[in-house]
């Protein structure tokens, strides 16, 4: 199995895919998480499981600076602490009711989540502009083979034939899928972005074919 050495950090999503006041599901090696951005723009990552009755928190909703569970509306602050139980409006929720949280950082348009309380910072991706993310059933070795290039320690693959324009940021997920963030180099135009997106899609298809044939297994 191929391992990337981004330390405890996983690139889980692109900033553009998480608008203010929304929550989305994402995955880190520790499991599923709910990634959310408060109304004032602050990012948070919590385990995707409400401590009350186990409902997935990524199905919830953001209100103000809190994330609420869709089942009974329990609200959690960025720290993970439960701040409101609607069934008991007069009750101050006990300290012990907490959703597990993870460190989260945003740099250069990419959102990174750390598995443990990270003293380090996520890798810096100089001069790259995020375009879009996609998932694939292909593993990292198959993607490397399709791109004709090896991944760096940060998980960056520069496809041999498109080295001037394109860069793929890979993240192996716990469900066997690989998350690919497509990043662009230098100046771009609407046309070059469409072209880069097509290149990335054909690389993904090629990698999936290789994976199926078992060449890169």
């Amino acid at each position: 199995m191929h391992t990337l050495t981004t330390g405890p950090w996983t690139p889980v999503a692109l900033s553009a895919d998480l608008p203010v006041g929304t929550v989305i599901p994402a995955r880190i090696p520790a499991g599923s998480i709910a990634l959310w951005r408060s109304e004032s723009g602050r990012l948070s990552a919590s385990a995707d499981r409400c401590p009350h009755r186990g409902m997935s928190l990524s199905h919830g909703f953001v209100r103000g600076e809190n994330l609420s569970c869709i089942y009974h509306g329990w609200s959690y602050a960025r720290s993970g602490k439960c701040v409101r139980i609607p069934a008991h409006p007069g009750l101050e929720p006990p300290e012990a009711i907490r959703a597990k949280t993870f460190a989260v950082e945003e740099a250069g348009g990419v959102i990174w989540v750390a598995t443990d309380e990270a003293a380090t910072t996520p890798p810096v991706l100089e001069g790259l502009m995020p375009l879009r993310s996609m998932t694939t059933s292909a593993g990292i070795a198959a993607i490397e083979a399709a791109a004709g290039a090896k991944a760096t320690a940060e998980g960056l693959v520069v496809p041999a034939e498109n080295a001037d324009t394109l860069c793929l940021l890979l993240s192996a997920r716990d469900d066997g899928q690989t998350l690919i963030h497509v990043l662009l180099k230098g100046e771009t135009t609407a046309d070059s972005r469409i072209a880069a997106s097509r290149v990335a899609e054909s690389l993904r298809r090629a990698a999936e074919d290789l994976q199926k044939k078992g060449i890169a297994a």
């Binding site: 009350h52 997935s56 069934a87 008991h88």
Partner: peptide
């Protein structure tokens, strides 16, 4: 809701989930 609760099985031992008076 029911298809998105974790775990799928109903936990009968205390500790896994936190009930209130409701």
């Amino acid at each position: 809701i029911l298809e998105n609760q974790i775990p799928r099985l109903l936990p009968l031992d205390p500790g896994m989930e936190i009930p209130t008076r409701a």
